[in-house]
Amino acid sequence: MIDSDIPVINSKILREKIQENSIRIVDVRRDQEYQQGHITNAVNLPLAKLLADDSPESIQKIAQDLGISDDTPAVIYDDTFGALSSRVVWALQYIGHKDVKLLDVTFSQWKELGYEISTEVPEIETATHSVKINSEIMATAEYLEKVKENKNVVIIDNRERLNYLEQHIPGAINIPYRTLSTDGKILRTKEGMKNLLKNRGISEDAEIITYCGSVGTLSGLAYYALKSIGVPNVKLYVHSFKEWKSLEKPIDKQENANYWDLSAE
């Protein structure tokens, strides 16, 4: 479809291609929200459905039911700053889908741009999709524990700062998910993203593993923020900190300070 190394599609380009009808656009908001209006020609996959069972077989069935075959270009969007759609893009890539992209804006931003929306639900013709696991992009707890001391490995925690201060995987650095976006786009500019890494002293040649609270949404967005500037070796620790804790793996915290009391929440 479009340059497949870049995981993001520009909203203006998508708008031009909507009518071609060769792209499968997937809206990952809740069914009710989808019914009230979505990008023209988009189909609905509530994220909860994918999270309920994210085994490769289940993802395969979901793809097939959405009419996505191995060769169908797909574009995913949400209204949650790109975190939910990132998780879906990642899942499809995990089962080996090659041509799937994030829309670079949220649904709200799409509407603000004045682009077409519709309440019409397109008919879906079921497709066939293979499963070729792309294990390169996934990190398990076991893997993370094994490599986390390696010099070339950087672990990034994408939760909010206070959650990170309170507890995190030892050695992880914190880039809150809000840092990853700019006004009007789900991701930073490439220059901005490169600059952030440069300031933090993170080499683009490092193996970078991202994680967040529980299901890999916020860290999914970070995964694609890194991919958008061409970082070659990124992995998503998809089951994230919730699993890490339940496995009773080691945890670090910022001691001797009552930072929570600074929050006005």
Partner: peptide, 29 residues
């Protein structure tokens, strides 16, 4: 405050506004 601090800001007694727990490397941003 959301990008680089704790999601809250602080109004001081000297008319400053403070962002706490900022990673030193992010101050320039």
């Amino acid at each position: 405050s959301e990008m680089y601090s704790i999601g809250s800001a602080h109004f001081s007694t000297r008319e400053n506004i403070q962002l706490h727990w900022v990673i030193l490397e992010d101050v320039s941003e």
